[in-house]
Structures are given as C-alpha cells and as structure tokens.
Amino acid sequence: MGATALLVSAALAAPAVAAADGPGGARHTATRKAIEAAVAAGVPGATVTARDAHGTWSATAGTGDLRTGAPRSTADRYRVASITKSFVATVLLQLEAEGRLSLDDTVDRWLPGVVHGHGHDGRHITLRQLLNHTSGIYNYLADAGFQRAYFTEDGFSKHRYDTVTPGDLVAIAMRHKPDFAAGTSWNYSNTNYVLAGMVIEKATGHPYAAEISRRIVRPLHLTATSLPGTKVTLPRPSSRAYSKFKNPHGPTYDVTTLNPSIGSSAGEMISDSADLDRFYGALLGGKLLPPEQLKEMKTTVDTGIAPNVRYGLGLMETTLTCGVHVWGHTGGIHGSSSEAAATEDGRHSVAVNFNGDWSGETAPVLDGEFC
C-alpha cells in the first residue's frame, strides 16, 4: 500500500471505550449495547446520535485511531456514501415541485445520447426509474475493472487519488448490457444517481453539489455536511477509516484519504450523525418537500433483497423486528459503514457510523433505538 496507507496490525487495536453525552441515556441503553456489540464483533469504532422529543443523545464505542488508541468522537465527520442519494432525490423532487422538470421525463430529454449502448436507451427510462432503481441501468461499481482498481489492495494503492468524472462512470456502465428492461424489475445501481446529479446540473445550470448546498445544507444549518468533490481528506473532527478489502481475516488498511469522485452524486458526501438526524427529521417532517412530492418519495417498490426493505425515491422503508416502520438510507464506502433513519413524522431519528467496512451490522442499532 505504500507509506500513505498505514497497515495496522490487530495487535495495535486499543480496548473498546464508550462515552455519552446529552439527556436521557437510560432510554437509549439498547442502542448503546448495539454499538458496543458491533465493536466486540470487530468494528474498530462506532459513533451514534439520536434525536427525539426529549432531546439529543450521543454515544461512541471502540477506537477512532488504531495507531494511537484515540477513541471515536460523537462529533466525528465521516463519509456517508449512499446516504447522498436521499439528498439528490430531494433536490430533484424540489425541481419537480417548482415545475422545472417531471419525474416522468425521460433521461434522454435531459441527457440526450448519454444513456446509450449495449441495449441501454435513455429514451425509454424515466427520472423516476433512476431514483427508485427500476431503470435497469448497469451499476458501474460492479464492473470488474473498477473493482480491481478501487477494491483491491494493489488497485486502491495505485488509484485512490485518481479523479474520475460523472461521464467516466456512466461510460463504464454503458460498456455492459442493462440488468433488465426499464420498469420490469429492481436492482441497486449507483449509475442511476450519477445520472440524477447530471440532470440536476442540466436543469439548473449549477453543479448538483451547489444545489444541495443551497437548498438543503445551508437552510438546515448542517454545519458538518460537505460535498468534497475531489478533496481527499476528511474535515476535523474525524476518525481514521479502515478496510480489509473484502478479506475479513486479512490485514487492516488505513483508507481515510481517497478521492471521492468515484462516488460522485451517488455517494461522495461527508456529514456527521447530528446533521443526518436533522436532515431526515426535516425531510420526513415535511420541511423540505411539499406533501405531493414527499408522497412520491415514499412510494416504494419491492427490492427483493430483504422482505422488510422497500425502496422509494432515494429513501428506504425498513420494517424493524418490532414492526415499527422507519425511513432513511444506508451508506458504505472504503472504511465507512453508515445508516440513518427516522420515524414517519420525522420526530425520532438516529444515525450511526462504523469506521470499518468489513464487519458490523447497523440494523441492530435501529432495532435498539426504535424498538
């Protein structure tokens, strides 16, 4: 990996530590136990924040830096990966509410000729199908060459600071056949949201990141949220991020610095747990979208990945083990695994992050908080 990617031995891992602040910790005992269990199972560290009618509560467990033993912080910034999709979908729905586009517009209307080749045809795919992953467009992340370049030790070492454009990512997808004819099935494809970001730029004349900042980040005062573009570092405060590159028994690599352009509008954002709580609380609480658009966003389709998970427009509906329905999104990128969710009225929310990408389930955290 080279000097810029510290190889951390398991022997350097510090013992788990936990801290909390905010009122009502006793009400969140199960949530705390869930993050401590994740650390016991091998996650380096976890940070979680919940908001409800009683206030805000935060806790950490485990280690933020395996070299120094420093703990995680409740204020940690981290890469939220696919949680970015909820922000992108919100902007597109705002544009629909303003009459600037329709979700029933074809992709080709906004991006003529971009979705073309090997059976892909943007003339027969709608913006709605991009947002709910029923487009059939191939997921560039599944490309074997992309996997070798970014998800193996050697490839990541060589390419972690490369800049790729949205057009580059779409072009990778167009080298493959579609997964299915548009509207006939469901498959999660990051290419859908790269295209959605391109549509936002075409419709507004501004980069999608600028529109998210103007329409969501600044109005909600999300002070820990940023769209880094090609900036490779995490803002402080933050912990280190670790990966085993799909080998749970292999060495642990520090992957904190990377060029997030590989995620583009499908997954480049950085945030913290408090900001994610505020965002989903505002979204579900009707502060970002008119009722008609929020209803569209919450109109879900079957995913086939789990009987308790359905997908709307950049929004996942999850039925927890106790029967409670929550809305939010998961996110995974090198060294970071996250989930944020809120109740249907937005009044109760939780966001959690693990700074390792090889182990740990976020679902028990949601069960602990809402059940």
Rank of each mutant, 00 (worst) to 15 (best):
M1A: 15
A5K: 05
A10W: 00
A14P: 01
A18D: 14
G24A: 13
H28F: 14
A30P: 01
R32N: 14
K33E: 15
I35R: 02
P44K: 06
T47E: 14
D52M: 00
A59N: 13
G64H: 09
D65Q: 14
P71F: 10
R72L: 13
R79K: 09
A81I: 05
S86T: 14
S86R: 00
V88H: 06
V91L: 06
V91S: 02
Q94M: 07
E98F: 01
G99I: 13
L101Y: 07
L103A: 08
D105T: 11
T106W: 10
V107Y: 07
L111S: 08
G113F: 05
V115P: 02
L127C: 12
Q129P: 00
N139T: 08
Y140T: 04
A142H: 09
F146K: 09
F146T: 13
Q147E: 13
T152I: 10
E153S: 01
G155H: 04
K158M: 05
Y161N: 12
D162G: 00
D168Q: 12
M174K: 00
A181P: 02
A182F: 03
G183D: 09
N187H: 13
N187Y: 02
N190F: 01
V194P: 03
V194W: 05
G197H: 04
E201I: 00
K202E: 14
P207I: 11
A209I: 03
A224W: 01
S226K: 00
V232F: 01
L234F: 03
R236L: 13
S238F: 04
S239K: 02
R240P: 04
S243R: 00
T257D: 14
P260V: 13
S264M: 09
M269R: 00
D275N: 06
L276M: 14
D277I: 00
G285P: 03
G286H: 11
P290Y: 06
I305R: 05
I305E: 13
N308Y: 08
V309K: 12
R310K: 15
G312L: 12
T321M: 07
G331L: 11
G331Q: 10
G332T: 15
A341K: 11
A342W: 06
E344L: 11
D345T: 10
V352G: 07
F354G: 10
W358E: 08
T362D: 07
A363Y: 01
A363L: 12
P364V: 10
